[in-house]
Design a protein around this nucleic acid. Sequence first.
DNA 1: GCCTGTGAACAGTTTCACAGCT
DNA 2: AGCTGTGAAACTGTTCACAGGC
Lengths: 283, 283
Amino acid sequence: MATGRTHRPATRSRGIPEATVARLPLYLRALTALSERSVPTVSSEELAAAAGVNSAKLRKDFSYLGSYGTRGVGYDVEYLVYQISRELGLTQDWPVVIVGIGNLGAALANYGGFASRGFRVAALIDADPAMTGKPVAGIAVQHTDELEQIITGNGVSIGVIATPAGAAQQVCDRLVAAGVTSILNFAPTVLSVPDGVDVRKVDLSIELQILAFHEQRKAGEETGAADEAASAQSVAQETPGAAAAAPAPLAPHRAAPGAGSDNGRQDNGRQGPDGDVPAVMPA
Amino acid sequence: MATGRTHRPATRSRGIPEATVARLPLYLRALTALSERSVPTVSSEELAAAAGVNSAKLRKDFSYLGSYGTRGVGYDVEYLVYQISRELGLTQDWPVVIVGIGNLGAALANYGGFASRGFRVAALIDADPAMTGKPVAGIAVQHTDELEQIITGNGVSIGVIATPAGAAQQVCDRLVAAGVTSILNFAPTVLSVPDGVDVRKVDLSIELQILAFHEQRKAGEETGAADEAASAQSVAQETPGAAAAAPAPLAPHRAAPGAGSDNGRQDNGRQGPDGDVPAVMPA
DNA sequence: GCCTGTGAACAGTTTCACAGCT
DNA sequence: AGCTGTGAAACTGTTCACAGGC
């Protein structure tokens, strides 16, 4: 077994870097597309282009999973799809509850990508009695009172919070108390959870603010264009080949420059008040 | 490109690290909350707790902005709010257009955090003629045909794409051609854009898949609890003080473990087909 | 004494470049 | 010849620990 022998716990549980884990879904999506077109194999170069990363990074990432490619040939699409799915835990079905069925919650409930890959919306929960029983995305909304029962009854371990900021911590506490150990938080608040519970955060206004930062910077350097236009904004390099070399004969656009490192995972902390930032949804 | 690589080493601090930029909005939110409670100053320790990071990181982050604190005292809340706002470019108003007014687009349009800090929804655009003229969040939806005119007429440089995956690249191309240079993409696709255009991506299913990965890992190690429960899942450390030491006398929960490094910024690449993953919104 | 600001050590991630298999 | 897999180098980000001002 090429399972690197000496050091390197390669296939062992501790191993895959977070940065790599965060990219696996990207590869999986690209591979799924290839699979649907019945493409049998891909080279790291091709797959990397489809996923929007560079090939060295992709190969390194795959090397943490094991040696699933064939030198001189490339990777077997179907096999890789399976291996990555397994690694991500998508071969099993994850029941998910969405709490807070406003516009955002409804959008999430209707999100096809949800159901398509390992996730199943087990229940929609909202605090508004007027919503109870109303079907959203084919599922009847249930009242918050039944939250605990829904969680335990369905063995739910992943919860999505799409409530207003003011209600998020409370909902979070109840989810955790009922047994949820992974939370995807759309409310603009820092959630406090016990050790062992994972929180990932998606925050609209933060994303916009980061864009504004770069936008402002662009405006400020609108002067010396030609020379270092792209690199000046600290947007840095990626796709050294595409961006630097080839004039791209037919493609109308080129690669988006990428600068790594953001966080999507929440850290820690306790926010003082409750509702500081306006909420995403009505009720 | 290969143009030497514009070093920006100098004593002239023209380079705030991306990781720091990504946290500034977090600090800003915590500071705004303090400001509303008329708190005059905060220590790095307090502010860090409110923002969910550790104090050393926060101090380092602020050091890139300059020396805005007072030794022995802390930071002046109002002053810091101003400095960070300025750094992020929020002292000016950014007109934003949202393309794709389905559930998600509507949720974004209604998002209060949008308007509250520097961003103004200049227009809502949808390809469905049935939507045209309908008011969403108090703004009449306009048809895609007017996209270019809206962008140039309002000097819009930031666009939000909330369309189905299949339409995203097309919309993106038109936005860019019309002058947009920053895009927040909610469609599950890799967008290709020319150099100089920033793309940030928010992808629901990716976030869920990352959670599933950790969740799976937790299940697999449900055995040896006590000893290294938290660290075993590679969720790593953050808040060394809180998580490792102090038994937290009164707080009901503790810090959420944080592992850094994700990406929210898209990289590069050209996707082969168009609509592989189901879209977020109906039409 | 308290708390900021920061150099220096450390850790994680990306890129390079090439050995090695097919 | 072509392409993967991977050490090693380069780089980015985080943590430590303490000098230095209040």
